[in-house]
Nucleic acid binder design. Structure first.
Lengths: 208, 208
DNA sequence: GGCAAACTTGCACGCAGTGCACGTTCGCGC
DNA sequence: GCGCGAACGTGCACTGCGTGCAAGTTTGCC
């Protein structure tokens, strides 16, 4: 929804090139490792000159995590698509559902999983979460009509939502060993979001 | 508290070199801009060979945000220093106070503020927040004795705490314009943490 | 005193990333 | 259609990053 304008050929070609570069970067790097892939290879796979790569991204890492922009788009679209009189937290929970049930989301994430050990990629991945937070916060501001300069709620709500997603996914991927319950990702996201809705003390000690 | 062992000369020298490099990197880059500073200049300022820089950090950005490790240390130390029978959220709030009242913290943050426009620095800064979350989560696990593989609470509590810090600081720095209330950072941190304690819906619409 | 491990440093090399200039393509008004 | 200006792709050249390797030097330890 961010922009659906059926723009001219030039705009479409730019978007296609960007997507091709991002896709090629993620595929090649997840298969062979970030350090084993050169920008030239990525450019070749996207059928552009090496120099062109840098017209779209300033580094390999940026291209690898570029796909996360669509996550932000899904998040914001799903949120703004909810009824305006619905409680914000409920809309946010629905938005999270929209993300984790998107087939492309898990695909991208499984590829990114192989790159969890690469510091620079991890850093840019975190930056992508930050961008998602900002876009979602703007949507919350638009919904609630609050002034973000004096009210931290929209920022906090967006941050909590993205944090719930991040923690749930990282738990699901088994960063702390395998959960014996082996729950679905959807369930984990719900549990994480429920904690932020009920307040942290309510969840102290009890397995969420 | 992480490690206070009065180690041998070699260990102390390494720590001193690392600190000197990180400090020089932050100072030079905040004064002249990241792209205007070379690794050679940073190494010269720390009085080591350029090659030695890469024995400690793999990039300029990493060195610039290295100081955030002490934030994590303050956070964890303050948390573990609280009485074990205190509610976790209260200990976390005290830990946040310890961070924002640390004189070195604000100093580092004001320097980092000048670099908020540099994508790679921002990315590594976010990664530093992630590291703080992990260390704090480990401390919460140690306190509560829960199993992080089946219980997301420690991770969520740590993430919420670091998020409260991050959002409060970013609000304080005026990312959304200047707050007419011009509150103290301590107060903002309290407000943010209070939202996570009371639950998001309790804060909906009301200026926190 | 002497040995082994750890650290620093210089060297060399491949690649990242950018400014610049040129050719090409697209959008747009006539 | 026609042409003009702007935006884009590409090649070239250059600086600086980041790393493997092989020394030389310092430290810890017996």
């Amino acid at each position: 929804m961010a922009e659906q304008a059926p723009q001219g050929r030039r705009e479409r070609k730019k978007a296609a090139t960007r997507a091709a570069l991002a896709s090629a970067a993620l595929r090649l790097c997840s298969e062979h490792g970030v350090d084993q892939v050169t920008v030239e290879q990525i450019a070749d796979a996207a059928d552009v000159a090496p120099r062109t790569f840098f017209n779209y991204f300033t580094s390999k890492e940026e291209a690898v995590v570029a796909g996360n922009a669509v996550t932000a788009e899904i998040l914001v679209d799903a949120f703004t698509g909810r009824p305006a009189d619905e409680p914000v937290t409920e809309s946010l929970r629905h938005a999270l559902h929209a993300v984790v049930t998107d087939p492309g989301y898990l695909d991208r994430f499984m590829r990114l999983r192989a790159l969890r050990t690469h510091p620079a990629v991890v850093a840019h991945h975190m930056a992508a979460y930050g961008a998602q937070e900002r876009e979602l916060a703007a949507a919350v501001v638009a919904r609630t009509g609050t002034d973000p300069a004096s009210d931290m709620f929209p920022t906090l709500a967006a941050a909590a939502t993205v944090t719930a997603l991040r923690v749930a996914v990282q738990h699901w991927l088994g960063d702390h060993g395998t959960d014996p319950r082996e729950p679905e990702l959807t369930q984990l996201v719900d549990e994480a979001m429920a904690v932020f809705e009920a307040g942290l003390p309510a969840a102290t000690g009890v397995p969420v």
